[in-house]
Design a protein around this nucleic acid. Sequence first.
DNA 1: TGTCTATTTGGCTAAATGACCAAATACGAA
DNA 2: TTCGTATTTGGTCATTTAGCCAAATAGACA
Lengths: 110, 110
Amino acid sequence: MKEALRTRYEARARILKAMAHPSRLLMIEELQKQERCVNELTEMVGADTSTVSKHLSVLKNAGLVSDEKRANCIYYTLRCPCVMDFIGCVEEVISANAEEHKKIMKCCKK
Amino acid sequence: MKEALRTRYEARARILKAMAHPSRLLMIEELQKQERCVNELTEMVGADTSTVSKHLSVLKNAGLVSDEKRANCIYYTLRCPCVMDFIGCVEEVISANAEEHKKIMKCCKK
DNA sequence: TGTCTATTTGGCTAAATGACCAAATACGAA
DNA sequence: TTCGTATTTGGTCATTTAGCCAAATAGACA
C-alpha cells in the first residue's frame, strides 16, 4: 500500500475507532440531541466520572465533539452531526445479520 | 443505562470496531468495487497472508463481508455497500479537524 | 481565603488487538 | 496418491484499551 494511501486510511480508522465503543456511541447520540456536561453524561452512561471523562477526551481528540465551559460546567457538543447517519447503515448491517442468522437456524432445524 | 439499550449500543460498536482499522478499510473499499480473493487483498494491503486472513475473518464475523469458494480461491464480497457512505462523513470530520488545526496554528504564529 | 462542585490526570490491572512465523488444512490438478 | 497453491489456525509478544480508585486541578461563590 502506498504511503499516502496508508496515511489516509489511518486517519479514517482513527475516527471510526473513536466511535467504536458502546458508551461513546450513547454519548454521541445524546449530544446530537443537545449539549451535555460531563456530569449528565456520566449519569446516562452509568460509569465512573473519570471513565466518562476519558471517553470524552477520546471523542474530542478525534474531533467529534467540542467543549465549552459555562457557569461551573463543561458542556460538550457533537461537532459533526453527520456521524449519526452512520448509525442507520450500521443498523442495516445488524438486521441483515439477524436475517442471515435466522436463515441458518431454520436450515439447521430441518 | 438500561440493559436493552446497552445491548443495542454494543451491537453497533461491534460493527464500527470491525471497520476501524486501516487495512480493513482498504479492503472494504476494494471489495466495494469488486470481489477479491485473499491473495489479491494480501497484495494490496502488503502484510502477511495470515494477518489479512484474520482481518477478513473480523469483517466476516461482523457480517460486513461474505465469502464464496470458486475454483481454487475464496472470493470475498462486501455485503452492505452502504458502509461506504460512512466514509464521506468521516472525511468531513477529518477536513473539519484540519481546518481547526490550521486555525489554531495561525493563531499561534501571531 | 477556604469550601464545594465539576472535571481531569496518574496509576494499576485485566483484557483485547494486531503482527509475524510456523504449522495445519483444504482442495484442485497432475 | 502426491504435489502445490490458497487459506486458516495456533502460538507468542508488544501495544493499546477500558475500567476503577485516589489524587490533582479549576473555578464559583460564600
